[in-house]
């Protein structure tokens, strides 16, 4: 790798000159990702509970949301929120907020399905045992069902988080200075598209790889005995 970058002093300078900007972009990517994924998870949990609620109208609302998000491309959702909602001139979202909202809403729909399936995979006897002790429905969810469901869901949640992280690269089209956007700027400024985009790819790969290691670590820690 090093030899590859070291073809000539000048070439190496181009890369090392570009790197600080790329890392700046990475910071933006991670900032948006972390906030959006936390929001997305909260949305997903709420929507999953709505889908499982004993109320038909709530089920329907949750189902419409999930279907709408799953049935449309991410980029259309992004344009809808950034250009569409802003054009109504009721609220004004800057590009970063629009980006976070889009990733959160998008991930939320997928998380909702993952969490719903996780909850439904827990044996009914667990709920019955908890209720028979005197736990309320909410306590049963919190202390008995969800802790077990999350252990089962973790690999799928990791997977969706990685997809969402990669989706943030699409936010560059609304002018967010994320890693991809910085790559674009550097590539056109230096005319070194091959190396810049390779560097961008490597940075994404390392981040996602670290995320995978973290997830595996957590998974081992909380294994059901």
């Amino acid at each position: 790798m090093r030899a590859f970058f070291l073809k000539g002093d000048e070439k190496m300078d181009i890369i090392s000159a570009a790197l600080p900007m790329l890392f700046k972009g990475l910071q933006v990517t991670l900032y948006i990702f972390v906030i959006a994924i936390i929001l997305g998870f909260i949305i997903g949990l709420l929507v999953a509970l709505l889908r499982l609620a004993p109320n038909k109208i709530l089920n329907w609302i949750a189902k419409v949301y999930v279907d709408a998000i799953r049935g449309t491309p991410f980029i259309v959702q992004l344009f809808f929120i950034y250009f569409g909602v802003n054009s109504l001139q009721i609220i004004s979202l800057n590009s970063t907020t629009a980006g976070i909202v889009t990733v959160a809403i998008n991930a939320g729909a997928y998380f909702a399905e993952i969490i719903r399936a996780g909850i439904q995979s827990i044996d009914k006897g667990q709920t019955e045992a908890a209720r028979s002790i005197g736990f309320t429905g909410a306590q049963t969810m919190r202390y008995v069902v969800l802790p077990q469901a999350f252990r089962r869901m973790l690999p799928t949640i990791t997977n969706q988080s990685i997809i969402s992280l990669k989706d943030t690269s699409l936010l560059s089209v609304i002018g967010i200075a994320d890693l991809t956007q910085q790559g674009q700027i550097q590539a056109s400024a230096t005319f070194e598209a091959f190396k810049i985009w390779l560097a961008v790819g490597v940075i994404y790969f390392i981040i996602i790889y670290l995320l995978t290691i973290l997830a595996n670590f957590i998974e081992r820690r909380i294994q059901v005995r």
């Binding site: 044996d123 667990q126 045992a129 908890a130 005197g134 736990f135 008995v144 077990q148």
Partner: peptide
């Protein structure tokens, strides 16, 4: 829920909470 606190139930399939220790299963309630 109040009534159920006064009525213990034991199931054919035990239904212990697998993510809790034996002690925690008992102290949770």
């Amino acid at each position: 829920n109040k009534v159920r606190q006064e009525v213990g139930m034991v199931f054919q399939q035990f239904n212990l909470f697998p993510h809790k220790t034996v002690l925690e299963n008992i102290t949770m309630g």
